[in-house]
Amino acid sequence: MNHHIVLRVVAKLLIPSILLFALYTQFHGDYGPGGGFQAGVIYTAAFILHTLVFGLENTKKIISPTLVQVLSAVGVILYASVGFASIFLGGNFLEYGALIPSALPHAANPGGQHLGILLVELGVGITVSSVILSIFYNFAAEDDSDIEADGIPNEKGKHE
């Protein structure tokens, strides 16, 4: 892919904006359409674009498969630990109202709810993004590097 200079430049321009859009989707999910599931997928799309243009090995240098596997567990643990944190702070499992101390009863504490939703969505985003990236690594890494060079790039323009 080294001779496709247009693709390389366009990809370099697109990848940061895709990542930025993913972060916007992640943290603006409370106010507009979006949330952890979508953000995770879009975040992964940036890395997949990088793989298609610069090759699998270069992407693995940026974010290693081991790190991806650890992150996919971190997301689930973050989600569950929000649940346990609210138990330790005196609420029920996943009762976010307990996360921020206030005089109000747990069910009527919007601040805590908001924090809880944000953390939980972050957990969802981390898990979804890293699981899909790890799945993609496994699918792409099988073998046939020569076929990959002219097979996958064909469909790249249509999706990103």
Binding site: G35, V131, I132, F139
Partner: peptide
């Protein structure tokens, strides 16, 4: 929303 994501996990 959740079904779509689980669907792609299942497909993979």
């Amino acid at each position: 929303l959740t079904a779509i994501v689980v669907g792609v996990a299942m497909t993979s």
